[in-house]
């Protein structure tokens, strides 16, 4: 017998998939919001394809953030990279004060309209939480564990791969989860510079004054963020169970 929380998650996933695949079935729900004979369901594109490209953009950007942020986090916690630590922290947190809209707008003259400016903005935004958590995770590995690993004759590389990273993994995953959730929402802004995604639905609603569209885009994005958040949290719990040291 599955737990009620699992059932709730499955129901949310089912609802999202049903809405994206057969949106017309939901027309009666949204009809009261579409004033003056406007279409109640977004009709200028396929919602399923938009959701897929939305997710693809976020995941691609996140993959880039993970590779760079984790590599940078490892680098600045090694003996040779410590002098870069204060500066890289300052840079990454300064980057966070940049509004996403500004990053998007400034990337357009460099790379043109479409997915690319969105990828750049999301990539930059995803860095901070992952980097910060990688650094904290690696720096808080208990010194006794590290000593024991050295005592067993592990090389620095072996220690990193089979002791430090597994111990830091729950924190790193939490950083990834944060940046994924933030970016699912931020990616909707990409549609202001013509990226394919669920933001398109919201913008179409704002332009034609159709609240039904705005609500559809917003709810689909929100539901996607909640489900992704839950999925990574489940992964985190699994890994924590394996890497528990008491």
């Amino acid at each position: 017998m599955p737990r009620p929380a699992t059932l709730l998650r499955l129901a949310a996933l089912g609802l999202l998939l049903a809405f994206l695949l057969v949106p017309q079935r939901f027309a009666p729900l949204f009809a009261p919001l579409a004033a003056g004979g406007a279409p109640p369901i977004y009709d200028q594109g396929n919602l399923w394809m938009l959701a897929l490209s939305h997710l693809a953009t976020v995941l691609a950007a996140c993959l880039g953030s993970i590779v760079i942020a984790v590599a940078l986090g490892i680098l600045v916690t090694r003996a040779g990279g410590q002098e870069f630590l204060p500066l890289s922290r300052a840079v990454v947190s300064f980057g966070q004060t940049f509004p996403p809209v500004a990053v998007l707008a400034l990337a357009v003259p460099l790379v043109g309209f479409g997915e690319k400016p969105t990828l750049i903005a999301l990539f930059l935004y995803g860095l901070l939480p992952i980097f910060e958590n990688t650094v904290v995770g690696l720096r808080t590995c208990p010194a006794t564990v590290l000593d024991a690993a050295s005592g067993m004759g592990m090389s620095a590389r072996q220690k990193l791969v089979s002791v430090e990273l597994p111990l830091a993994m729950p924190l790193i995953l939490e950083g990834i989860r944060l940046s994924l959730v933030i970016n699912i929402g931020t990616a909707t802004l990409g549609s202001t510079v013509a990226a394919k995604g669920l933001g398109e639905v919201i913008i179409a609603g704002l332009l034609s004054n159709n609240t039904a569209f705005v609500l559809q885009g917003g709810l689909a994005t929100g539901l996607m963020a909640v489900l992704l958040y839950d999925a990574v949290a489940a992964l985190e719990r699994r890994l924590c169970r394996n890497a528990r040291i008491d």
């Binding site: 959730v181 929402g185 802004l189 919201i202 704002l206 705005v214 885009g217 917003g218 994005t221």
Partner: peptide
Amino acid sequence: QTIPSIALFGILMA
């Protein structure tokens, strides 16, 4: 927090 900002702005307009 999970509702994207442009959607929340739009939803509140009505």
